[in-house]
Design a protein around this nucleic acid. Structure first.
Lengths: 215, 215
DNA sequence: GTCTATACTTCGATAGAC
DNA sequence: GTCTATCGAAGTATAGAC
């Protein structure tokens, strides 16, 4: 094995950024394909595997096109994140408005693709300041939306703030989801996962009853 | 900004691995310094920022020395992981044998350095098969040790398996720790963190009483 | 809109002097 | 044990032809 070539260079590349550069439109099919390729690479091999050459290869175009649509790699990452974040937010909103919001939130959170991308973007944010603020804001937005709904739903089931504050429920669900995805996806490990899922679902069942198929 | 140069190359480097290469001893001070540098880079900038040149720079030596002590970068990552994993395991063992094992386990798990490194190594494992098995085994070992002790401790406090199976408690503590570290460390976000910590510690207090300083 | 060609930087890894 | 020097590959980004 071997490899890995960086992650956080003091950018000394010939980035003159002439400001006169051309840029593709946001509605382009090709552009969307590049976002797809980026997402796929992040899922399969992690953010560090995303390079203009590889994205281009996966998308079936030449590397220079990547820079035609995205001035820098940071721009590419940001665009990929934005598209995904919007989808995820809308998806969660639908879940929270369903007839079994707790079950639905649990299922949405447990989607491993979402958890893996969340971790990858968080890792990316760790050393790319330009991306950090945006990811942070989106995560905050998602949690606040959960808290808003959970406050009402939990109260409706007689769960008091002393039992479990809504924001704590939100953190718990997120924490469990991330850990399971990390262990199963990255490490192929699953000790305790079944038991944990059963335990959570037992709790959901006591509150919202049996899960009714509407997935 | 810019940068990032890979993570998972189809190794086409001139890795002839002649097998006649020299290799430094495991007890070397310099070697330990290289492991320190690797760990620091991972904490500060993520695993993708670890390159032989950068490790050498942080350690204050020349890049070729990295390859004198570690044949490949994978070897360097593995050695860094092993050292850390042994420390962490011993640390946890001491905690679990203390007079307030639940409190101690919670505090050990909450060390953000540990959580961040855990995530970085998991991300690394995601696309470095050579490393994956070892990390997975270590994580499993840590969890099993927790379960062993938790089984006795929880039963002693009258917590039945129906209330909360020991392995579920272990997963919950790990999940919360990882999420808090990820959000606070990588994203600078802390919504709900204080409430969650208070909630967990309220639970610990009911089981083991007030935390007695022995940290 | 897409491509070829190219500039420049960094990477992993090795050979061989000291 | 540590260094200099070097190879070959891959990275970001740009210019300019088509």
């Amino acid at each position: 094995m071997s490899s890995l070539q960086l992650g956080d260079r003091p950018n000394t590349y010939p980035t003159r950024v002439v400001a006169t550069r051309r840029l593709g439109t946001e509605t382009s099919e090709t552009r969307a394909g590049l976002l797809d390729a980026t997402e796929q690479l992040m899922l399969d091999s992690g953010y560090a595997a995303v390079s203009s050459r590889r994205v281009a290869a996966v998308a079936g175009v030449r590397p220079a096109l990547v820079h035609y649509y995205f001035r820098t790699m940071d721009d590419l990452f940001l665009a990929t994140f934005r598209r995904r974040a919007e989808e995820a937010f809308a998806h969660q909103q639908r879940a929270l408005r369903s007839t079994q919001p707790l079950w639905a939130l649990w299922e949405v959170s447990r989607d491993p693709r979402g958890s893996v991308l969340t971790m990858e973007f968080a890792a990316l944010a760790n050393h790319r300041p330009a991306i950090r603020a945006e990811i942070s804001a989106a995560a905050e937005r998602v949690r606040m939306q959960q808290v808003e709904v959970l406050t009402e739903v939990l109260a409706g089931h007689g769960v008091t703030v002393d039992d479990c504050p809504p924001v704590v429920a939100a953190v718990l669900i997120a924490g469990i989801s991330v850990l399971l995805a990390l262990e199963q996806g990255s490490l192929g490990m699953s000790t305790g996962h079944g038991e944990t899922i059963a335990h959570v679902e037992g709790y959901l069942r006591r509150l919202e009853g049996e899960r009714r198929v509407e997935r």
